[in-house]
Measured scan of single mutants.
Amino acid sequence: MLYRITVRNADGEKLEIVVEMSEDEVRALAEELRKAGYEVRVEPIPEGEEP
């Protein structure tokens, strides 16, 4: 499935990426980023919607 991941650092800089991963993989990635001090938001992209 496609997911949009938005990551912000302490300075407020934002990075937005689209990935194709399983829900478990995305959850693990988000958890690791949060542990590293980043603010993370994950949104699933519905099938048929443009990323």
Rank of each mutant, 00 (worst) to 15 (best):
Y3V: 02
R4Q: 02
I17M: 11
I5C: 02
S22N: 07
R4M: 04
E13C: 12
G37F: 10
R41F: 08
E50S: 11
I17Q: 04
A28E: 04
I5A: 00
E47K: 14
P46H: 11
E43G: 03
Y38F: 14
V18P: 01
I17L: 09
E43H: 11
E47Q: 12
M1D: 02
R4V: 03
I17Y: 10
I17A: 03
E32C: 15
E39G: 05
G37M: 02
V19E: 01
Y38R: 02
S22W: 10
G12W: 03
Y3A: 01
A10E: 04
E39L: 12
A28F: 11
E25M: 09
G37R: 02
L29Y: 15
P44S: 08
S22Q: 08
V40K: 00
A28L: 12
I5K: 00
G37C: 03
A36V: 10
A36F: 13
P46T: 13
L33P: 00
L15F: 09
A10C: 06
V18Q: 06
R41I: 06
L15W: 08
V19D: 01
L15R: 14
V40W: 01
R8A: 09
L2P: 03
E16I: 09
E25N: 13
M21R: 03
R34F: 06
I17P: 00
V19L: 06
E23A: 13
R41T: 08
P46V: 13
S22D: 05
V26G: 01
I45H: 08
M1G: 06
V18G: 01
E23Q: 10
S22E: 08
T6P: 00
E25K: 07
L2T: 06
R8S: 07
A30I: 07
G37Q: 01
R4Y: 05
V42G: 00
M1V: 07
D24W: 13
E23Y: 11
M1N: 06
L2F: 14
D11L: 15
T6A: 03
L2S: 07
Y3S: 00
E20S: 13
E32L: 15
E49C: 04
M21G: 05
L2Q: 07
T6Q: 05
Y38A: 04
E50V: 09
R27C: 10
V7F: 15
E50C: 07
R8H: 09
A30R: 04
P51G: 08
I5V: 11
P46C: 07
R41C: 07
A36R: 15
T6S: 06
R41E: 07
K35H: 07
G12E: 02
E20F: 15
V19N: 01
T6L: 11
R41A: 09
E49T: 09
I45W: 12
L29M: 09
E20R: 05
G48P: 12
G12C: 11
L33G: 01
R34G: 05
V7K: 02
V19F: 03
V18Y: 08
K14W: 10
E20C: 03
E49G: 12
G48N: 13
K14R: 11
D11K: 14
E32Y: 15
P51E: 08
E31V: 14
P46R: 09
A28Y: 13
E43D: 09
A30M: 07
E25T: 07
V7N: 00
E39D: 10
Y38Q: 02
L29N: 01
K35V: 04
R27D: 05
N9S: 10
K35C: 03
L15Q: 14
A28G: 08
M21D: 01
I5S: 00
V19Y: 03
I45R: 04
E31C: 15
Y38L: 05
R34E: 05
E32G: 10
E20N: 14
A36G: 08
R8L: 13
L29W: 10
R27E: 10
V40Y: 02
V40G: 01
I45C: 06
A30P: 00
E39A: 12
I45E: 06
E16S: 09
R27N: 09
E50G: 11
L33Y: 15
R4F: 04
E23V: 10
G48S: 13
A10V: 06
V18M: 08
I45M: 09
V19H: 02
R34K: 07
K35G: 06
E13W: 15
R41L: 07
N9A: 09
L15G: 06
K35L: 08
V40Q: 00
Y38E: 01
A30H: 02
